[in-house]
Design a protein around this nucleic acid. Structure first.
Lengths: 183, 183
DNA sequence: ACCAGTTGTGCAACTAGTTGCACAAAAGGC
DNA sequence: GCCTTTTGTGCAACTAGTTGCACAACTGGT
């Protein structure tokens, strides 16, 4: 039940059309909540029906026509309610760790290459985050909003740092394994 | 498409009934791939129909009767195939970070308590992992299997460490925010 | 012998997310 | 003027995961 709230947040930051939202979900917001354009359009329809957002006046709201949405007071209230409500963290779902566990039983054949690939991907993501930090967050203390945004970015950076370190360590371990393997 | 493979892994480690699997998904495997008993029973049915597992001979396979499953060669082959196949990491979905981002727009009212709650939960999980490490993984280098298992546990420990640190930092930041807030 | 609680298995309906496709409108090449 | 590509919106069907309930069988108290 988070996608509608992700959209409300994005629209509050800046009223947008479906496609603009889709693009923004590929960057910033999508870093920790991704969505396809179909999910977004569907959800925009629902949110409008529920009176949380409304299409901003434009020329023709026909097909193939850009249609921007803005958040209504009810939408902002709902977002505030959801933000403040306590929620349990849901157990992580990590395929890579699962595969590693399977590999402990059926053999590590072929998984090493994928570990390497993941390492590169995480390094890339880390570099991207650090670039954003460099660009948008100087050493000075900004507004409360800035500091919150920076905090979120920090989580991304630290997470990617964890993954790159762990994957590096895992690959080292594999070196050692291949010499002494043979169960 | 990971649940069936999680189940195959679990069954290879030890043939089990649906309920036993459910219990094990609440511990070890569930640490990075959780599942409810309904998911598991449904999946067991499918896996059996596909010829990947089979019910081990017992008394009456009627209702309310324990039914253990073992993995067939085809199942092991499928698991090996899946383990070796390259897979893209799927973008994380984190509600807490999303809420923080929403809070940057609609206000941080009420979210601090939940951060504190999450911190406690992550600390607890971390303690649990460290206990397991203490108990199951001594200083000596074990078999290749042991080292893989330890590697996976390490990921859990480092992840929880990241969260506790980050949440602690976030709460500190909130202290500073409340004094200078007012946008 | 009977009832209450626990263990174990399972169906059905729902919610969330993904995939594949369709189609209108504008923009640009030739 | 026609044809291709890009932009923008959307439906329908499918897959995965969750929730709520049902029910059989065993276990122990009275």
């Amino acid at each position: 039940m988070s996608l509608p709230h992700a959209i409300l947040t994005a629209l509050l930051e800046k009223p947008s059309s479906g496609l603009e939202l889709t693009r923004r979900f590929d960057r910033s917001i999508g870093y920790f909540w991704s969505a396809t354009h179909q999910q977004i359009y569907r959800e925009l329809g629902k949110l409008e029906a529920e009176g949380y957002i409304r299409a901003l006046p434009s020329q023709q709201p026909t097909r193939g026509q850009k249609k921007s949405y803005g958040v209504l007071p009810a939408g902002r209230a709902e977002l505030a309610r959801w933000t403040a409500a306590s929620q349990d963290p849901k157990p992580p779902r990590d395929t890579l760790l699962l595969r590693l566990r399977a590999a402990a039983v059926v053999g590590t054949e072929g998984i090493e290459a994928d570990l390497r690939r993941h390492l590169v991907l995480h390094q890339r993501q880390l570099a991207e985050y650090e670039e954003i930090e460099q660009r948008d967050f100087g050493p000075g203390r900004g507004t409360a909003q800035d500091r919150l945004q920076h905090l979120i970015l920090r989580a991304g950076i630290d997470l990617e740092t964890f993954w790159t370190r762990w994957l590096t360590h895992a690959l080292e371990e594999f070196e050692g394994l291949s010499t002494a393997e043979g169960s």
